[in-house]
C-alpha cells in the first residue's frame, strides 16, 4: 500500500513536471529577474540601488502621463463595458424578436482579427477617412480625430465594440443560472422589477460581475495593441498609455526603469483586484452554489 502510494506520487509528479517547468521558465523566472532588474543600477554592473529606480519612474513625466491616461481610460472603459454588457445581456434575456441575430452581431468583433478591426477604424477616423468625408459633405471642417480630444472617446468605443460581446455572453450565462423560483417568490412577495434586480439578480451576478470587471480591466490595459496599430509609437499625448511607455523604454534598453514600471503596474492591479475580491466575498458568499 505504502509502495503504491509512493509510486502514485511519482507518477503524478511526472505529469505535473512539464507544466511546472513551463511556469517556472516563462513566469516565475522572468518575474524574479524583473524584481532583480528593478533593484539594480544596470544589469551588467548589478549594483544594488534600493528603490531608486521606482523613484525615477515616479518622477518621469512620460510615465506619469502614461499612467494617468491608462487610469483615465480604465475608469471610463471598464465600468462602461461591465454596465453595457450587463444591460445587453438583460435585454437579450427578455423575449425580444431577432434575439439570436443581436447576439451574433455583438459577438462578431471577437471573430475579426485586431489588425482588420484597426483597419476599419482607420478608414473611418483617418483625416482622409469616411467620417470626415461625410462631415465635409454637410459642411463641417475635417479634423484629425485621433489627434483631438475625441481620441480618447474613440478608443473607448473601439474597446467596447471589441469586448461587449464576450462580456455579454458571460452575463447571459450568469443570468440563466439565477433560480427562477427566487425571482418568482420575490414577485409574489411584492418586489418591483427594480427591487428584484437589486435584491436577487444583482446578488447572484456578483461573482460574474467581479470576473467581468477583472477581465475588462486586464483588457483595458491591453488596448495598447489597438492604439499602437492605429497611431504608432508616439501617439497624440492623450493616447500615450502605460504600454507605450513600456514599449519605448524596452526599445531604449532601459531595463531598470521598465522593470520598476512593470512592478508598479502589477502591484496596482493586484490592489484593485484584491479590493474586488473583498467586495465579492461580502456580497456573493451566500449565493454561490
Amino acid at each position: 500500500m505504502r509502495e503504491s502510494t509512493r509510486a502514485e506520487k511519482l507518477i503524478s509528479m511526472c505529469y505535473l513536471l512539464p507544466s511546472f517547468v513551463g511556469v517556472m521558465v516563462f513566469f516565475v523566472a522572468p518575474f524574479a529577474q524583473i524584481i532583480r532588474y528593478a533593484l539594480v543600477d544596470n544589469p551588467i554592473a548589478n549594483n544594488f540601488v534600493g528603490i531608486e529606480n521606482f523613484i525615477k519612474v515616479f518622477e518621469n513625466s512620460a510615465f506619469r502621463r502614461a499612467a494617468g491616461n491608462t487610469a483615465r481610460f480604465s475608469v471610463m472603459a471598464v465600468p462602461l463595458a461591465v454596465a453595457l454588457s450587463l444591460l445587453l445581456a438583460m435585454l437579450l434575456e427578455a423575449q425580444i424578436p431577432g434575439k439570436s441575430k443581436f447576439r451574433t452581431f455583438f459577438l462578431s468583433p471577437m471573430m475579426v482579427p485586431v489588425a482588420s478591426i484597426v483597419l476599419i477604424w482607420q478608414v473611418i477616423f483617418d483625416y482622409n477617412g469616411a467620417l470626415n468625408g461625410v462631415l465635409a459633405s454637410i459642411g463641417v471642417t475635417p479634423f484629425d480625430w485621433m489627434k483631438s480630444d475625441y481620441s480618447h472617446v474613440i478608443i473607448v468605443v473601439l474597446f467596447l465594440w471589441k469586448n461587449l460581446g464576450y462580456n455579454m455572453i458571460l452575463f447571459m450565462a450568469a443570468l440563466s443560472n439565477i433560480p427562477k423560483a427566487l425571482l418568482e417568490a420575490a414577485a409574489v412577495d411584492g418586489a418591483s422589477a427594480l427591487r428584484r434586480f437589486w435584491q436577487i439578480k444583482f446578488r447572484f451576478l456578483t461573482p460574474t460581475l467581479l470576473f467581468v470587471t477583472i477581465l475588462s480591466l486586464i483588457n483595458s490595459f491591453k488596448v495598447f495593441r489597438e492604439v499602437y496599430l492605429l497611431t504608432g509609437d508616439y501617439p497624440y499625448e492623450d493616447l500615450y498609455l502605460l504600454q507605450h511607455f513600456m514599449n519605448n523604454t524596452f526599445k531604449s534598453l532601459d531595463y531598470q526603469k521598465l522593470s520598476a514600471a512593470a512592478i508598479i503596474m502589477g502591484l496596482f492591479m493586484a490592489l484593485i483586484i484584491g479590493i474586488l475580491f473583498i467586495v465579492e466575498g461580502r456580497l456573493g458568499k451566500d449565493v454561490e452554489q
Binding site: A181, A187, V188, D286
Partner: peptide, 20 residues
C-alpha cells in the same frame, strides 16, 4: 393583475428562500 397585487402567497417546491 400582477402577482404582487393578488394577495396570494406561494410555497415553492425548492422553497425559494432568499439565500443572502
Amino acid at each position: 393583475v400582477p402577482p404582487k397585487n393578488r394577495n396570494i402567497a406561494m410555497v415553492f417546491q425548492s422553497y425559494a428562500l432568499y439565500p443572502h
